[in-house]
């Protein structure tokens, strides 16, 4: 059986909030290392890869592989009943029909308990090859969101160019064009403000802003975001959480002229 206790419900609330507009029905695949999810959006352009490591829970118990088939709209309805600071416990049997969720207020004066009906989801998993990306950019997640939102107002697509001079986000729309160039920032006192660019070769790729703006809903999970880019392969946008857990988004590029 699965028993997983989170000190603060907000971790799961934020994760589900960040992905529910991209994927609807998906399996939480549980085993002794944690809870994983891999799901593509309907258009097969974007992929969500979530890993909530056992270390992010206290305690975490899951002695065999359990697939928890969830509708994220339904899960959201239940999670809305949890306060951010509540202690959240997930429980499920080995071949579960339902997921049991309890929310305890931190001063223990209220315990809410819900059972959510599960679905049988036959999910198609993709093998994601290990890639040595040509460019890895680490930046404040709020900055990335601002860039994507600002450019979305002008165009459907953004071209991300990483070179030795920095990283440039450029768009071309009906009303005109615009670009934002970022250079390395080293803020010793506030490391989360850093912009780090690791580059092995220059890259230039175009992506749909609609999906990038959607990924930015994960902003609350982490103060920094990492973009991994190589020519002609999907972009990886990564939000890291405590305990080695992460939320990753992959986005297929736009190609050709």
């Amino acid at each position: 059986m699965l028993e997983a206790r989170l000190e603060q419900a907000q971790l799961l609330k934020k994760v589900v909030d960040a992905i529910k507009d991209l994927v609807q029905d998906c399996n939480f695949d549980c085993n002794d290392s944690g809870i994983a999810l891999q799901a593509m959006d309907n258009s097969h352009v974007a992929l969500v890869s979530m890993m909530l490591k056992a270390e992010s829970f206290n305690p975490f118990r899951c002695d065999r592989n359990i697939a928890i088939g969830l509708n994220l709209v339904s899960l959201t309805k239940v999670l809305r009943a949890a306060q951010n600071e509540d202690i959240l416990t997930l429980k499920a049997e080995d071949a579960p029909d339902s997921l049991n969720l309890t929310f305890e207020s931190s001063d223990k004066d209220r315990i809410s308990e819900y059972d959510l009906k599960l679905m049988d989801i036959d999910q198609e998993h993709l093998g994601i090859p290990d890639t040595d990306y040509s460019a890895t950019i680490s930046m404040p997640s709020a900055e990335f969101k601002r860039i994507c939102t600002d450019l979305m107002a002008m165009s459907e697509s953004v071209t991300i160019e990483a070179g030795k001079d920095g990283i440039k986000f450029a768009c071309n729309g009906d009303i005109g064009n615009g670009s934002i160039t970022l250079r390395t920032v080293q803020d010793v006192e506030n490391k989360e403000n850093n912009i780090e660019i690791a580059l092995t070769e220059p890259v230039s790729l175009t992506f749909s802003l609609k999906y990038l703006v959607n990924f930015c809903k994960a902003q609350n999970l982490s103060k920094t975001v990492k973009l991994h880019i190589s020519n002609e392969v999907p972009l990886l946008v990564e939000y890291a959480m405590e305990g080695g857990s992460y939320l990753r988004f992959y986005l297929a590029p736009k190609i050709g002229d």
Binding site: M40, V45, L47, L126, P129, A252, K254, I255
Partner: peptide
């Protein structure tokens, strides 16, 4: 004009 690719082009079935 560039066209949108899908992930199946890059990521295989495991």
């Amino acid at each position: 004009k560039s066209s949108q690719t899908t992930l199946g082009k890059f990521f295989g079935k495991p």
